[in-house]
């Protein structure tokens, strides 16, 4: 069979709209999710037992069930309690709640990755625990989790495609619409796939760049 991409041209704006939806849903979920992730991490690392169990339980449930099932539950459950938000909101909320659990675990790994000796040095200088976290631990921890966080951003962007199953009009959804309209399935999927690939490659390159410029002090790998 011969491939012909010309039939897709009239749909280029549909592709781009889909891409844009994927990008902004990802950004919302990343920002909101990372913020909630901080709270989850604090709860999990905190002193209150009930809160610790609650946060740990939440993280484990999210990390051990598929995003698709989580999206289904949000998509179907919200209308059942009288909240009708539509696919955009459902996907944004679902991806946010999902991302929060993963980022919480990344923060935990980051704090644990900072050598204990640095905290001890702070203690020996007479610094208070809050000062130690703020002036000594935060930056090395951030540096150590930065690759994991940007990787999470890419995974989240790719995962936004799952939104198409609950009819979020993002890139995969657009791709399948074009495929169903033009019957140029392989061509449509190639274009869609390449767009995803391009964005994730740009994100990966940008994060590498950001890493070297943001953390010049880190000469050799992990601190």
């Amino acid at each position: 069979m011969a491939l012909y991409f010309g039939d897709l041209l009239p749909f280029s704006s549909l592709f781009l709209e889909g891409l844009w939806t994927a990008v902004y849903i990802t950004l919302i979920a990343m920002l909101a999710g990372s913020a909630i992730g901080v709270l989850l991490y604090l709860g999990k690392a905190g002193a209150r037992r009930a809160l610790r169990l609650l946060c740990t339980g939440y993280i484990e449930v999210i990390r051990n069930t598929p995003l698709l099932v989580q999206l289904y539950l949000i998509y179907f459950a919200l209308p059942a309690v009288g909240i009708n938000l539509g696919p955009v909101w459902a996907a944004a909320i679902g991806l946010t709640l999902n991302n929060a659990a993963y980022t919480a675990e990344i923060y935990r790994a980051g704090f644990e990755s900072v050598p204990y000796g640095l905290r001890e040095a702070g203690k020996a200088l007479g610094m208070k625990p809050a000062q130690i976290v703020r002036y000594i631990v935060i930056l090395p921890a951030t540096r150590n989790v930065f690759p994991a966080l940007t990787n999470q951003l890419i995974l989240l962007f790719l995962a936004s495609s799952i939104g198409s199953i609950i009819s979020l009009p993002e890139l995969t959804n657009a791709t399948m619409t074009v495929s169903n309209t033009t019957y140029r399935t392989i061509e449509a999927l190639t274009v869609g796939g390449l767009l995803y690939l391009a964005v994730s490659a740009v994100l990966a390159l940008a994060s590498k760049r950001a890493e070297t410029t943001l953390f010049r002090w880190a000469v050799s790998g992990h601190v």
Binding site: L158, A159, S160, S161, T172, T185, I186, G193, Y196
Partner: peptide, 23 residues
């Protein structure tokens, strides 16, 4: 590895499921 890790698995599933019979 670069290609597969940069494309959503859902798109890969569509590709295999619809693409193989066409190819």
């Amino acid at each position: 590895i670069f290609c597969i890790r940069g494309i959503p698995i859902l798109v890969i599933i569509f590709f295999i499921f619809f693409g193989i019979p066409l190819l």
